[in-house]
Nucleic acid binder design. Structure first.
Length: 444
RNA sequence: GGCCCUAUCGUCUAAUGGUUAGGACAGCGCCCUCUCACGGCGUAAAUCGGGGUUCGAAUCCCCGUAGGGUCACCA
């Protein structure tokens, strides 16, 4: 094995939906492994807690990782290794590093016998890549439990065995595991397996500065997909929450991250998950897409949400792309929002003059004049640029607001919309003239 | 409480003994503009406190303080 090859794992327990902080850990572990030659990233489902582990959660983890594009090279389930756990447990007992211990069953702990580790009661020092050397006295751990029975290893024992068997070179996990590390090192020494490199990531908190949790409104990551976020945006945001490149670059694709990511630039202090900044990343990544790619992801999104795809979608893709910060926003704009002008333009005399600061008579006069100008423009020349050329002189001369506001509202039926030239081009000559005619009538 | 970790604008962060403490998001203002969005420009905003060390400290050391983690037959 190449000594530069890094093998990392993401080892969630399928006992609930994972939040952004968990996936940030996965992203860092993935980047760390994949930056090295032939690096391997392993997904290990830690399902030793049989009561609380659920298939539903496991599926969600796999689905989310796939959506993010963080593909594991191998996937294990910890329960698959139970034979190996038992074997090493027996070895430890035979060698005197562990022993069967008689217990008095209590309300919570029903067993009358468990397997305990014979604690040498020594200080253990390990070097964390992010924090430097950390020393802890293991004495107060006592002879801790490593298995509920010979066939039911506890987390601390199972991780050590699996990490060793899978050849994990770097353990990248949350800071909440720092105090677990010394006892795991004790087990490693008893087993005679190497101690991996440890990198304990700072935690991610919610805006209320408390640990991210479902209870406090933290979303399962798939909810962001449903809200119209791009996986690229989540990856980019999460990677830069607690890590920073050497320059000021903010926008990264996964491939770009793979080129510059480095464990040594990870922050020591915990960060706060900021949805506002995530939204900005999403808007930026949406803008970076080619219009073909944008259309494709939007169609996917509409399909997944069960929304209909309007026949004019293709025409307004550029507008949608520029104006949307999420795919949901684009979908909403398409449905009943600012782009519904494609279906209908409900006008009232009030709307037609509202922002023009003029009276109905004047607005009508301008619309009539514009109508005569437009009638002469052939369909073959009917594009936004040319239309603006033809009409802008008049608007400039008469007052832009007083001319353009009635025109724009006549076409869109809305106070807020794209500019009138874009609208004319989008609607086509026939529909545009029909709407202008309607507006003129309304102003009588 | 014991043990452990952490501490720069509201948020994410840069600056590894010498900078007017830099950037980004959000905020605010201005410009562009018929409206909305985009875009451009600008503005405000921080080294937790106290002691050292040093010619010089955001940076190194100590003590406080604050926040967090962990003390399971959960992971």
């Amino acid at each position: 094995m190449n000594p530069d090859t890094i093998i990392t794992r993401f080892a969630p327990s399928p006992t609930g939906f994972l939040h952004a902080g968990n996936y940030r850990t996965a992203i860092f572990a993935y980047l760390c492994a994949k930056r090295s030659p032939r690096g391997i990233f392993i997904l290990r489902i830690e399902d030793t807690d049989k009561e609380r582990s659920k298939k539903e959660y496991e599926d969600n983890i796999i689905e989310t990782l796939a959506w993010l594009g963080i593909t594991p090279d191998q996937t294990f389930r910890q329960s698959e290794h139970s034979g190996r756990h038992r074997e090493l447990l027996e070895k430890l007992i035979a060698e005197g590093h562990a022993y069967r211990s008689a217990e008095t069953p209590t309300e919570e702990n029903r067993r009358s016998e468990v397997i305990r580790f014979r604690n040498p009661n020594i200080p253990v020092t390990f070097t964390d890549v992010i924090r430097g050397p950390i020393t802890m006295d293991t004495t107060d751990l006592g002879d801790f439990v490593i298995a509920r029975s010979i066939d039911e290893p506890v987390f601390h024992f199972a991780v050590v065995v699996d990490d060793a068997d899978e050849g994990i070179s770097h353990v990248i996990r949350g800071e909440d595991h720092i105090s677990n590390t010394p006892r795991q090192i004790l087990i490693q020494r008893a087993l005679g397996v190497p101690t991996p490199v440890y990198a304990h990531l700072p935690l991610v908190f919610g805006p209320d500065r408390t640990k991210l949790s479902k209870r406090r409104g933290a979303k399962a990551l798939t909810e962001y997909r449903d809200l119209g976020y791009l996986p690229e945006a989540l990856i980019n945001y999460l990677a830069l929450l607690g890590w920073h490149p050497e320059n000021n670059q903010e926008l990264f694709s996964l491939e770009e991250l793979l080129r510059v990511f480095n464990l040594s630039r990870i922050q020591k202090s915990s960060g706060i998950f900021d949805e506002t900044k995530l939204l900005w990343y999403n808007a930026e990544h949406l803008k970076r897409l080619s219009s073909e790619a944008f259309e494709a992801v939007l169609r996917d999104y509409l399909q997944r949400e069960g929304s209909s795809v309007p026949e004019y979608l293709e025409k307004i893709i550029p507008l949608l792309q520029e104006r949307s910060t999420t795919l949901k926003e684009a979908a909403d704009a398409l449905g009943n929002g600012e782009f519904s002008f494609f279906r209908e333009a409900p006008i009232t005399p009030e709307l037609l003059i509202k922002g023009a600061k003029t009276d109905a008579e004047t607005a009508k006069r301008h619309l009539v004049h514009l109508e005569t100008l437009l009638i002469d423009i052939p369909e073959s020349a009917w594009d936004a640029g040319f239309l603006k050329e033809q009409l802008f002189g008049y608007a400039d001369q008469e007052g832009r607001g007083v001319v353009l506001w009635p025109l724009r509202t006549a076409l869109s039926g809305k106070e807020k919309s794209p500019d009138p030239f874009t609208l004319l081009a989008l609607l086509g000559k026939q529909e545009s003239l029909a709407r202008i005619g309607k507006a003129i009538t309304a102003l009588v």
